[in-house]
Nucleic acid binder design. Sequence first.
DNA 1: CTAAAGATGTCCT
DNA 2: GGACATCTTTAGA
Length: 194
Amino acid sequence: MTNPLARSFYERDTIHVAKALLGKILVRRLGSTTMAAVIVETEGYRGYDDPASHAYMGPTRRNLVMFGEAGHAYIYFTYGMHYCLNVTTERKAQPGAVLIRAVQPVRGIKMMTKHRKTDRLVELTNGPAKLTQALAITRNLNGHDLTSGQGLFIVEDEPRTPEIKSTRRIGIVSGREKLWRFFMKENPFVSRKR
DNA sequence: CTAAAGATGTCCT
DNA sequence: GGACATCTTTAGA
């Protein structure tokens, strides 16, 4: 199965999608090269019921994609230098997104090391801003349709049922109590391990 | 208009 | 464990 995940995959409850994305393959095509990586860590961000979500205060120019159709890339710029990749969820006008926090490279590793300027494999993609740098994902992909199969998309390689652990989300001040961070147990690419 | 914070990473001690 | 880079977005005056 190398077709992009269908719209219906994303048009579900945000937290459900966050878990379901673990083990799926994120594919980035850049010219003639293809980079691919397994999603190993995600975080769910909902809407008006989630104070940590960018969508909490209602639509703005930055978060507008979160209020649109599911299955699009929501990419935001933060701390003056980093991009983070989300996929949108839920029905139209119902905001929601899943932050991709870490991936495990499987293809195109040479190009990733070039983008990241490091040879340490685990350092390539073990954080939300690291993986966007490795895969050359910037704001020009904001709003990109992930079901199009062009440039950036997600596929299911072979169905797997990874062992999943859930914790509090990272780097937020409100909405801390919700256990909406999910990652593959024992995976070395998971970010912020103690 | 102005200010402050930010879903982070890196380098230093 | 802590400082700092760096600039967009948003809230508030």
